[in-house]
Structures are given as C-alpha cells and as structure tokens.
C-alpha cells in the first residue's frame, strides 16, 4: 500500500503513515497482531472525535485477550475502516495495509517526530519482547 519507510510506530505498537492520497492512516503493527493471535472483534474509534496522545481510541479482541488501541499523537478521526466489523481478520492478514484502523488528521504534525521509524521500532520490539 505504501512505502514502509514512511511508517511511524509508537511504543504501544500503533503506526501512522501517510498514504498516496496524502491522508494519514493508523493501524497496529505486525508484531502486535501476531501477539494477539486470531482477531475476532474490533471496537473502532468514533468518527469526528479528537483524541489526546495516549488516550484509548478503541479495542482489539482475540478469543482470549483484549488489547487497547491508543492514540500515538493528538489526532482527530476522519474515517474508520468499517470493513473490520465484518472481517476483523484483515488486521491479521495485512496489518499495515487493508487492516488499517482509521484515517486521521494530526492535530500537530510535528508530533510524528516523537514516534519511531521502522528500524528503531523493530529493535525496540527485539529488545523488549524476546
């Protein structure tokens, strides 16, 4: 979908990325989906709502666990991926693509600099979870 180098990751395993239409997408990382296992339900954020950094915007459920989705930066929800209501497994299959959670507007675009790029996120995961 988009060039991997343009992904920004949070320690709480969400990502933000600018797509070809110049819209910011938000989702969860491949590592996060693999930890959760088969995803059965996604509680999507509310369209139009503003969230502060680290505020809970939704929930992802597998059969035996629940994981919260947090706003990596201050943001506003413009569009949610309602396909996830019927096919939550999209997150398992394509976490960085079709399995995105929402499209957002950044309330302060410089916030992205507080997030990690792909390489630093991967080494973050490696050092913390192995």
């Amino acid at each position: 979908m988009a060039d991997n180098s343009k992904f920004y990751f949070a320690k709480s395993h969400e990502w933000i990325s600018l797509d070809s239409n110049n819209v910011y997408n938000l989702g969860i990382s491949d590592f996060a989906q693999s930890e959760l296992g088969d995803i059965v339900y996604v509680q999507l954020p509310e369209i139009g709502k503003q969230y502060k950094k680290d505020e809970k915007i939704g929930e992802i459920e597998s059969v035996k666990s629940v994981s919260e989705i947090y706003a990596p930066v201050d943001l506003t929800i413009k569009f949610v991926n309602s396909k996830l209501n019927e096919t939550p497994e999209l997150i398992n299959n394509e976490p960085l693509g079709e399995g995105f959670i929402a499209q957002i507007e950044l309330n302060n675009s410089s916030d992205l600099s507080s997030l990690m790029d792909k390489n630093s996120y991967e080494s973050f995961v490696k050092s913390n979870h192995e």
């Binding site: 339900y41 459920e61 597998s62 059969v63 035996k64 666990s65 629940v66």
Partner: peptide, 9 residues
C-alpha cells in the same frame, strides 16, 4: 465472548 469476563478483563 469470554473477553467480557473477569478472568480476562
């Protein structure tokens, strides 16, 4: 829907 329950949540 066990994720509603106390042993998980």
């Amino acid at each position: 829907l066990a994720t509603r329950e106390q042993h998980i949540r």
